[in-house]
């Protein structure tokens, strides 16, 4: 027998609508709401031994603490597997399903899965860690989703590894790994080109990513004095690179005092960037980070310069690390009252 514990929100748990969205998690033995439908598709003597219901707002606003409460209630039923939702395309509910499954897997060591629409926020957030059945966007797809969730839950509970996303109808993790094809790349490329030219269907082997656009800040109002910071991803460091800033794959950033300098002299600062011809920057690092020009404008009284250079190496940097470094630098500079930044880029 497989012991299933089911997680639902207040609506699908039959405890109320939006008026009950603030409710703290509660548990009940056996199936509730959606769980009665799921039971119809369970094989053998697999059964839902308990249900935990959490309010959408409570979970959305409660953070890790709310998830901990749910996981605590779930663990009392001693589950072999946890099913959350399905939550389809919903925002709060889908995120809660993802968070609960991720916590169950990590903290209880018990398999868990949910059902979400591929474009839902919960899918984007948790697909790398949680098995997610791809569902319709609305609860109109409930029957189909439950029919497919039931056997997946049973297999996970028995320790079976799921097949590929395409085979199982689950979402990919959104990660990349190497595999081997039967046919070499050059031949596949010609086949793909011909299919595309004929208007036949083809599947790119490397889908394009989508990045969130960066919002530009309001311009500095002309004439007003402002505080400017110099930042670079060109790996500009004091000669000899005392902090061992790497030439590539940097995961950290440095600050170097520049308040006593009117510019960078050759031989005192250098670039350790591993992806560019650094000879021009090394001859005169001001070419990379315009300290000399900024200082002369400061002396005209039009701006005040932050006392430090913030420096990292962008070469080969991962999007995740660079996003974090940018945010850390931004927070530090805002705390120092900086209104504008020049990023000496490569």
């Amino acid at each position: 027998m497989v012991r299933i514990v089911h997680y639902l929100n207040q609506f699908f748990g039959g405890l109320g609508g939006e008026d009950q969205a603030g409710m703290a998690p509660v548990s009940e033995p056996g199936p509730v709401g959606t769980g009665r439908g799921l039971t119809r598709f369970l094989g053998g003597d697999d059964r839902i031994v308990g249900t935990v219901v959490g309010g959408d707002n409570y979970m959305a606003q409660g953070g890790n603490g709310a998830v901990e409460e749910v996981v605590g209630l779930i663990s009392r039923f001693d589950p072999d597997v946890v099913v959350a939702g399905p939550a389809f395309g919903s925002g709060r509910y889908g995120l809660a399903c993802g968070a609960v499954c991720a916590a169950v897997i990590e903290q209880l060591g018990v398999p868990a899965l949910t059902g979400l629409h591929p474009d839902s926020p919960g899918a984007a957030e948790y697909r790398a860690w949680v098995p997610i059945l791809a569902t319709a966007e609305t609860a109109a797809g409930m029957g189909a989703a439950l029919e497919r969730l039931a056997p997946l839950a049973s297999r996970l509970a028995r320790g079976e590894a799921l097949g590929s996303a395409a085979e199982e109808g689950t979402l990919t993790k959104g990660l990349r790994r190497n595999t081997f094809e039967d046919v070499r790349g050059s031949t596949r490329a010609i086949d793909m080109l011909l299919a595309k030219m004929r208007g036949e269907s083809f599947t790119t082997e490397w889908p394009l990513p989508s990045y969130e656009p960066a919002e530009a800040s309001e311009p500095i109002s002309s004439g007003a004095s402002f505080r400017l910071a110099l930042v670079t991803e060109a790996g500009i460091v004091p000669a000899g690179n005392p902090d061992r800033l790497p030439s590539g794959w940097a995961t950290d950033w440095m600050t170097y005092p520049i308040q006593d300098r009117d510019g960078f002299a050759e031989g005192e600062f250098e670039s350790v960037h591993g992806g560019i011809d650094t000879s021009f920057a090394n001859q005169d690092p001001d070419r990379q980070v315009p300290l000399d020009a900024a200082r002369s404008i400061e002396q005209e009284g039009r701006l005040s310069l932050h006392p430090d250079l913030l420096s990292t190496t962008g070469n080969m940097g991962t999007l995740r690390d660079m996003t974090r470094i940018g945010a850390e630098m931004g927070r530090a500079l805002i705390a120092d009252g900086v209104q504008a930044v020049i990023v000496g880029s490569t």
Binding site: T179, E181, G185, E205, P207
Partner: peptide, 10 residues
């Protein structure tokens, strides 16, 4: 493309 290796999403 002389080899059979490729990246795939999983």
């Amino acid at each position: 493309g002389g080899t059979r290796i490729r990246g795939e999403e999983y």
